[in-house]
Amino acid sequence: MSVKNILIVGVGGQGTLLASKIMGKVYLGRGYDVKVSEVHGMSQRGGSVVTYVRYGEKVWSSVIEKGEADVIISFEQLESARWLEYLRPDGVLVSSTQKLDPATVIMGKAEYPEKVLERIEKLGVKVISLAADELAEEAGNARSANIVLLGAFAKTQDIPKEVWKEAVAATVPKKTLETNLKAFELGYNN
């Protein structure tokens, strides 16, 4: 098989690293070679962040380039637009409908574009959108939007649901397990 590329994008502090960690665990467990490239340090607080997940028989590079992502998992609408170029024209965008104004918009120096996900769909891109932030609150913790999105992504993959749930259970802190499994289900069944 050719190498599969998954790009996870969001705003620093949204929990993109946890999602990539769980994905890495799942693919390694399935016998694939895996590379995950992360962004570290407080310097990324509140900024646009990206994590690359790649798996296949043999993965050389740890980065994903423009036009290469099979799937983009986006935690925020504007970030979906920013990273869209990285998607293959036949790829899938799994995006939260959440909107977070960047400093430039807050200060009135720029405008948050309207109807971002509809416009992306009009370009012919397959979009799976969900209110990950609201579903996370429904699950019991607004911070588990990352697991909601992971659930929605897992639905697109050819791997049994239980495998994903086991990886979630092995990664998240015990006291948040119940909330996170509920968040996963809400995303998966969205």
Partner: peptide
């Protein structure tokens, strides 16, 4: 590639 058809405000840290 496919590109978004509009201005995308920056998001620095």
């Amino acid at each position: 590639t496919v590109s978004f058809d509009g201005e995308i405000p920056g998001r620095p840290p």
